[in-house]
């Protein structure tokens, strides 16, 4: 009997993206985008050298008589003609809350899609993936105020509701990270996985206090910072009047002259955010919208693999 596919090549580099990001983002339906990413991720998973990419997935074990045949992975059987048992841990305890920023600052993009679309696809992908694994997924979308809140559930149709909420266009006059974190901290008493998806282009002082309260509540916190490549490089050719997407404030900027200062300030902000995450035990993923989502997901689970055990142990 051969080993499970996930156990091979443990040190191989992450697989190249099988889905072109531009092609993916050109799919209008958010649900189908998430489906495409998850399917791609699954197919890649089975060739993946990494073991246990699931949040709570542990391993494949060869079937031995006496095992519950319900846990047989029939897909693996179909391909390999061997019986494998999928082993899960804590199947019903994981509750994931997606905190998705839908403010106007996310409604920016130079690649043909916006950060909001990218963030929504990311959130929908995570939601679908977790939902397929049987985990409970909830959603809290926000801009300068709370927008939609769906408690973490694992029932038929819940994923559909999440995707509908994620598909709403961005709004609001500012990004307010304080309120949603404060609110989710108040509402969710049970330990859970908190995934915050935003551009985090906001002052970090108050945010730090709220993030402390979140991590102090025992929630595992993962931050996805979604940024457009133009935000990372300020690569504009001609001087023009820059208009703030949220406040409407205008500023005349010559990119050639302002680039150095901008990058320095952005770098400082990013370092401060990373330092904050390190201090509080939160995980920060900085994602450029040019990066394939599938790879982002891989990074996420790879990182979880490294840290997951510790978290699980701490939770018990």
């Amino acid at each position: 009997m051969s080993a499970p596919p996930s156990s091979a090549n443990a040190t191989a580099p992450p697989p190249a993206s099988r889905i072109d990001t531009a092609a993916l983002m050109s799919i209008r339906s958010l649900e189908w985008r998430a489906r495409a990413v998850v399917e791609g991720f699954w197919s890649g998973l089975h060739r993946s050298p990494y073991h246990g990419f699931s949040v709570e997935f542990t391993e494949y074990r060869q079937y031995t008589p006496g095992d519950d045949p319900r846990h047989l992975d029939w897909r693996v059987y179909a391909r390999s003609d061997r019986y494998y048992i999928r082993k899960f841990e804590d199947e019903t305890n994981l509750r994931c809350h997606l905190l998705v920023d839908q403010s106007h600052s996310m409604d920016f993009g130079t690649l043909g899609w916006t950060k909001a679309a990218y963030a929504a696809t990311l959130a929908a992908t995570l939601a679908r993936f977790l939902h397929l694994q049987g985990d409970a997924v909830g959603l809290l979308s926000f801009d300068d105020a709370l927008r939609d809140y769906l408690p973490a559930r694992q029932r038929v149709g819940h994923l559909r509701q999440i995707i509908i909420a994620l598909d709403k266009p961005p709004g609001g006059a500012a990004t307010n990270l304080i309120k949603p974190i404060q609110r989710i901290t108040e509402m969710v008493r049970k330990r859970a996985l908190m995934v915050v998806i935003s551009d985090f282009l906001t002052p970090l002082d108050e945010f730090e206090r709220q993030l402390v309260s979140l991590t102090a509540s025992g929630h595992e916190t993962v931050l996805f910072q979604v940024l457009d490549p133009a935000e990372l490089t300020l690569d504009f050719a001609t001087p023009s009047v820059f208009e703030d997407a949220e406040s409407g404030r205008t500023l005349y900027v010559d990119p050639a002259a302002a680039r150095a200062g901008y990058l320095a300030r952005l770098r400082a902000h990013q370092e401060a955010l990373a330092a904050l995450c390190r201090k509080l035990g939160a995980v920060l993923h900085v994602l450029s919208t040019a990066r394939p989502l599938e790879q982002a997901l891989t990074d996420f689970f790879q990182d979880r693999l490294k840290r997951g055990r510790l978290v699980r142990r701490g939770a018990r």
Partner: peptide, 10 residues
């Protein structure tokens, strides 16, 4: 006019 996500660092 260029619409930009945030003028925080400009």
């Amino acid at each position: 006019r260029t619409r930009f996500s945030s003028l925080l660092f400009l």
